[in-house]
């Protein structure tokens, strides 16, 4: 707030109102607006507008066939009080995000940190091994082969050969197995952008700081990590957290590909699936928008929470 008033004062000192000054600046920088225009048009149309539209539609009963009526909070009330499947989806999403998000984040950070002192060539190879699953399209389908329902699947074959089980387990059709397996696959494909960001962040830290730390009495690498390394890469930690949260909530296509839709007994049904169910299959757009809005709120909440946690790093 105080910054804003200071800005205002500086402008008024030029004997101009804020509006006048802004208008002058805008005219002076015409070309800047021209340069952002194409991007902002596309960005607004396909990123901003859909969010705004979701919020508006969530208060209506729009279904693509009839003119929408405003129903105010009816959709929200139905979602939280009458929709049992939504509660299952919410629970699954929560478990999913609470495990996959932190696990992927910590694994990215730890691996990036472990490989930081290796030689550049070895580091490049290790980076590729960890990063490859996240960029290789539908390679996660291999988990369907490894854990296939027949005895040609690797897991079943070995469990049977070792005499642990006598009959094949249909892993991706078994309500007890789908969730843990999907979590493993999700973690497997999740070392993406944040991982690369951490590697770069670690590389960017001035080595002299570590030497100074060693002189100042840093006794082991864990102290070094906490007092020097992490505080130095806070911006990357924040960026990585945002990417991890987004991905752990948006993870639906992989579950659908491995377990089918809907998954057995809704055991791996997430909010994204629920949204897809109402939006794309039943065309209850009003209701599906309500689900989307709830998901936005949860994502923003998570980000705010993580920001708070990260501000404590190094203290």
């Amino acid at each position: 707030m105080s910054q804003k008033t200071a800005e205002k004062k500086a402008v008024s000192r030029k004997d101009m109102s804020k509006a006048q000054w802004t208008w002058k600046e805008m005219k002076r920088n015409k070309v800047a607006y021209l340069m952002v225009l194409p991007y902002m048009l596309v960005f607004t149309a396909f990123t901003v507008l859909p969010v705004v539209l979701s919020i508006v539609i969530s208060f209506t009963d729009f279904n693509m066939l009839e003119l929408p009526n405003i129903v105010w909070l009816d959709n929200y009330i139905r979602l939280f009080l009458d929709d049992d499947i939504f509660l299952i989806a919410a629970k699954n999403t929560f478990i999913f995000a609470a495990i996959v998000g932190p696990a992927s984040y910590i694994m990215s950070l730890m691996v990036a940190w472990f490989i930081n002192e290796l030689s550049p060539k070895i580091r490049a190879i290790v980076t590729l091994i960890f990063y490859a699953p996240s960029i290789s399209g539908s390679v996660y389908l291999v988990w369907g082969t490894l854990f296939s329902a027949d005895s040609y699947g690797w897991a079943n074959a070995w469990l049977m050969k070792l005499g642990i089980i006598t009959k094949e387990i249909a892993f991706f059709e078994d309500a007890d197995w789908v969730m843990p397996l999907c979590i493993v696959v999700a973690i497997w494909t999740s070392l993406g952008t944040s991982f690369l960001s951490f590697i770069a962040g670690l590389q960017g830290i001035d080595k002299a700081q570590f030497e100074a730390g060693a002189v100042d009495g840093i006794r082991n690498r864990w102290q070094e990590l906490w007092y020097i390394t992490l505080p130095n890469m806070k911006p990357q930690l924040m960026f990585g957290a945002v990417m991890s949260i987004t991905n752990s909530f948006g993870f639906g296509a992989v579950v659908t590909a491995l377990c089918g839709f809907p998954s057995v007994d809704y055991a791996a049904h997430t909010i994204v699936h629920h949204l897809d169910d109402y939006g794309n299959q039943r065309f209850e757009i009003g209701y599906s928008s309500t689900i989307a809005v709830v998901l936005f709120a949860v994502m923003i909440g998570c980000n705010a929470l993580v920001k708070k946690v990260l501000s404590k790093v190094g203290s």
Partner: peptide, 13 residues
């Protein structure tokens, strides 16, 4: 908007 996964806005898109 980095926080929003694009599957969430697929229907309105």
């Amino acid at each position: 908007s980095l926080m929003f996964h694009k599957t969430v806005t697929a229907v309105t898109c």
